[in-house]
Amino acid sequence: MKKELEHQFVSLLEQNQNIVHKVCSLYTDNPEAHNDLFQEITIQLWKAYPKFRGDSKFSTWMYRVALNTAITLYRKAKKQPRTQAFDTVVYRIGAEPYDPTEEKQLKLMYSAIRELGDIDKALVFLYLEDKNYSEIADTLGISEVNARVKMSRIKTKLKTILNP
């Protein structure tokens, strides 16, 4: 029984691991920290898995656990010198026509997001993942109106960084 559950969980996580990697890439800035956070999120997901009832999609459920772990439970927050890891991940996508201005803008925006607080990051992350405001509000435990207000403030902030 336990073995079956284990297999089910690991397979599901293997298929959906991108979500966790994306959270890790936002909240950490070197491969080692990335792996540590990934592991912690995996542990938390596994511990909570028996309560997953399948009435929501596994991926939706993962967003909540992953973000909660990154924001509230994760302990290792050693200040480390920033590495280029993030920039390399953000590196160009081969198929896209190369546009230096666009590239520069993206880089600027990503580094601006890195500077945001943990909660703002979570908001931006959910936004980038195309979640609607009711889902964002629900995950963070704030009202939908406030989630909108906060997001539009972050947008303005990002725009001023791009067009000073």
Binding site: Q44, V65, N68, T72, I119, A122, T139, G141
Partner: peptide, 9 residues
């Protein structure tokens, strides 16, 4: 960990 972030904190 299944609560919303606000309540969890």
């Amino acid at each position: 960990v299944l609560d919303d972030a606000n309540r969890l904190m």
